[in-house]
Amino acid sequence: MAGHSKWKNIQHRKGRQDALRGKIFAKLSREITVAARSGSDPETNQRLRLAVAKARSNNMPNDNVERAIKKGSGEDGGGNYESIMYEGYGPSGVAVMVEALTDNRNRTAADVRHIFSKRGGNLGEAGCVAWMFARKGLLVMDREESERNEDDMLLLALEAGAEDVEVTPESFQVITAPEVFEEVKVALESEGENCSTAEVTMIPENTVELTGDSIDKMLALIDALEDNDDVQNVYANFEADDADLANYQSS
């Protein structure tokens, strides 16, 4: 999981920026709508259950959640969205995966291709970088809020069914298989742990170290992709010093 904690730093930064731009609710609604096509009951539809949990963690109003579910289940004329994963390379050869939900495949493909080209990257063929990522459950806990040390957290997480625990100075990061993500989350919370991040995501299995201008170029590509209304998530396999990332945040 090399570089994983710094990669999450970027994801958190972007999540906050999306919220400020007022786009996060629209993207979450679309995610819920698509998930609800397989069933409108979160208890029996894991994808919907995860989408609703993500929406609530972002303080999305219940009315918005219910409206999105109705659209997906056909009760309220939902749009014909489809899920597409684009793959390509950013500046310095960084592998990039772009998760989109769209009602116009041609429009979204053209937009994503243009963004890659304009920002120093290249959109590739399906499968060109997917092998560098693994879909995993991720649970992050603030070490200051936990009464457990590293050994205790590792034991608790593994007994709950987790695959691994990465420890940083600030956090415990528990990695799970997607199938047991919720089970592990419930087990941790039942033992008093509070998860600041809880999601099924794509984690890079190897990373590219970026420095200097390369960081700004890569983050500019991520900014442009995530600013597109059809793009839900962007994943990239790079790492950089926290100080360099902070400099970009404040620029």
Results as ranks from 00 to 15, higher is better:
T108G: 08
V129Q: 04
A95N: 12
Y86F: 15
R49G: 00
R56M: 12
S29F: 01
G72F: 03
I24F: 03
A110V: 03
A35K: 04
D142N: 06
A95S: 15
A36G: 06
S73C: 11
G79F: 11
N149W: 11
L101W: 09
E147D: 12
D151V: 14
R148H: 07
R37M: 12
G78W: 03
Q17V: 08
G137A: 10
V140D: 05
M153P: 04
A134P: 02
L48Q: 06
F25L: 01
L101Y: 15
V140E: 11
S29T: 08
M60D: 02
K70H: 07
Y89E: 10
E43K: 15
G137N: 10
A68L: 05
G39I: 08
R30Q: 11
M153N: 04
I84D: 01
E82N: 11
S83Q: 11
R105Q: 13
R47N: 06
A19Q: 13
G88K: 03
D103H: 13
E147I: 12
M132G: 13
A134S: 15
D142R: 01
R148T: 02
D152C: 05
S57W: 02
S92T: 12
R21H: 06
L138C: 13
E75S: 13
G124Y: 02
S29V: 03
A55G: 08
Y86R: 04
G78K: 05
R21D: 11
D151R: 13
E125D: 09
E150Y: 01
E99S: 14
